[in-house]
Write a protein that binds this DNA or RNA. Structure first.
Lengths: 362, 362
DNA sequence: TAGAGCCTAGACAACGTTGTCAGTGGCAGG
DNA sequence: CCTGCCACTGACAACGTTGTCTAGGCTCTA
């Protein structure tokens, strides 16, 4: 409604009673100088200012100096909205992730930013909070801003809403999890292989009864890690008791309850495989409170894992590398790459620190 | 140069030999439909489409339906660049911080985003990597995009370059550290008071020789924390040996060297106060390797601090609250708040976990 | 039934920039 | 001196949207 606070029509120059400090006539508060203003002040044409601002050739040093002086005097800054409107490219990319505050996404986000910066682009980002509706809302808002490309860590599993955008030329790369119901580039860690090797590691240290606590299997990575767990157990000819597996949320309270149920149940496990970062940390807390030592391997590394006692053995994925790879793919597309969609899988690495090498007790 | 890939003039409808899958004639790759296209398809005027898209009143249900169908059929999405150009507001704010990958900034960034979202704005952000030149470059790029406001965690100490922008109406709030050489809103933690109480805590536990390892004092927070350290020592009538104080970078290698020099020097300390997060973590590692137990209080909390042995006593600051407060101030300004600049200081909280309660040894 | 008043709808200009194109003047070569 | 070329410069349209203003059709009342 503030749109209507303008001067009433018919009184184009009526005294509007504004009070500025005496010296501050130009520039006025809330009004920015345009190229036209600069041109007028420098006594040149509009286009000449444009040329100077963009470093285009064909301007005499003397003219350039006059323009530059006017720019500095007025505090002119080019309006990129107008530029974008005219040129069609925004030199910005969007990043949609689950939660900026999650330490897993910090390095990823930073890596994407660095690649963008190397290509002269800015990064606009937002958190979906794991909510598919919010993911869509964000993605479409970014498309309305006409970002040149998108890096998406999907929360939902149906991305058909992106089809018109992709068709219209918005390069899109999915990270960490694949897109749902559409064909698109994706860069992921090897969740299946990582989980499988982590569980195999526990088995190699003598464990027969191993629990798995992970996220809901509608999340691709969670499902893959579960699959890896089952595969490792099967490889070793070990049965999986359904009471050992918990696939709820990663909320600390629920993980705590699940772990307690598994450890206090009729067939307690001697080791856990944790499906992600947050589960691992909660399990570390839970296990620290118990007398009996339970082995633990977690998917995803975290800071200070080596300082705990015992150090936490993890399947590490390189989140910065995920981001970098995805962003590079994105810019390759923007630079004209029209090849078919690619799906890359980055390897994981087992880092043994102690918790995964505990022998079964009792 | 792709600008020139257009159809040559004079052949407006020459066969251009493009090959689309038979059904996919419209929309064409790389070309987005505009309101004009929608209007043509729906058989209405341009402005009517605008009204429907923006939910403005004055459109018959029947007309609205026709327009909506055309929008869906064409996959139309409003071009916000044009909208911004016309309306003057971008509904986006910029966040410039030091490093997105630093866990301290995750929650801050997320908090700013949530507030922005509540006000219907998007967040554009970038990392300055502690480089003043890069900070300026980023800030000005954001201004060129015409963000409505800026939240800045300053890397440099001279922000006069922002004066024209602020005068032109870009609301700006500094976080964590104050602006340099200009008068601007700022939201900070109580570095001085926090450090002072942390050091007093160590003194209360019997320490007389206390080391301080922090960042370069050109950084405001670092200087304030050093000041708090000195004040606490002076309050207790304790001398400060200059060999106990190290003000270099927070780089692990240099912190490690500094700590070793202080502990192995002629007058070794029995406790450390760490100037920030990263220093604390490095000191935890260094001290864990030594036989003699050295007390430690760190500025800034971090995940798992309670799980270490001993738990790490810290002066906690609420980084999410910093971000929230700053963003709320920003939007209050944007909503017309024209009062003088404010500088808020948020309190810190001592969390005792063990490392700060160790008694001096030897 | 005429006139006032309301509601819907569209024509048009403007936002600030950039690509195109045409105009100017200087200078070298014939 | 004229011609042609070149370097420099500016007028103008266009990008896609929204605010303003006006036109036309309808209802309601006197």
């Amino acid at each position: 409604m503030a749109e209507n606070d303008r001067r009433p029509p018919g009184f184009p120059h009526a005294s509007d009673g504004r009070q500025w400090p005496p010296g501050a006539v130009e520039p006025r508060y809330g009004t920015r100088p345009t190229m036209k203003d600069v041109a007028a002040r420098a006594g040149v044409g509009l286009k000449t200012v444009s040329r100077v601002v963009n470093g285009e050739p064909g301007v005499t040093p003397d003219t350039e100096r006059r323009v530059q002086e006017a720019i500095d005097a007025l505090g002119f800054r080019r309006n990129d909205s107008a530029r974008v409107l005219r040129k069609g490219r925004t030199a910005s990319i969007g990043l949609v992730l689950e939660d900026l505050a999650d330490p897993f996404y910090g390095p990823l986000s930073r890596a994407v930013e660095e690649v963008a910066r190397a290509h002269g682009a800015l990064l606009i980002n937002g958190s979906s909070a794991e909510d598919p509706a919010r993911e869509q809302e964000l993605v479409l808002a970014l498309c309305a801003r006409r970002v040149d490309g998108l890096v998406v860590i999907p929360a939902g599993d149906d991305h058909r809403y992106l089809e018109p955008e992709i068709k219209a030329g918005v390069a899109t790369v999915f990270v960490d999890r694949p897109a749902g119901r559409i064909d698109a580039d994706a860069v992921m860690s090897d969740s299946y292989g990582g989980a499988r090797s982590g569980v195999a590691h526990l088995i190699a240290h003598g464990h027969r009864r191993i629990g798995f606590i992970g996220d809901q299997p509608r999340i691709h990575t969670a499902a893959e890690r579960l699959r890896g767990y089952r595969a490792a157990m099967e490889d070793a000819g070990l049965p999986v008791d359904s009471s050992w597996v918990s696939l709820g949320s990663t909320d600390p309270v629920r993980v705590r309850d699940a772990a307690a149920a598994i450890l206090d149940g009729p067939s307690p496990v001697t080791a856990f495989f944790a499906g992600n970062n947050r589960v691992t940390v909660t399990l570390v807390r839970v296990l620290a409170e118990r007398r009996r030592r339970v082995a633990l391997v977690g998917f995803d590394d975290f800071e200070l894992a080596d300082l705990l006692d015992p150090g936490v053995t993890v399947i590490a994925q390189d989140s910065a590398q995920l981001g970098r790879t995805a962003a590079e793919r994105l810019f390759r597309r923007l630079d004209g790459g029209r090849s078919g969609t690619e799906r890359s899988v980055l390897p994981t690495r087992l880092i043994a620190r102690g918790s995964g090498e505990l022998r079964p007790e009792g």
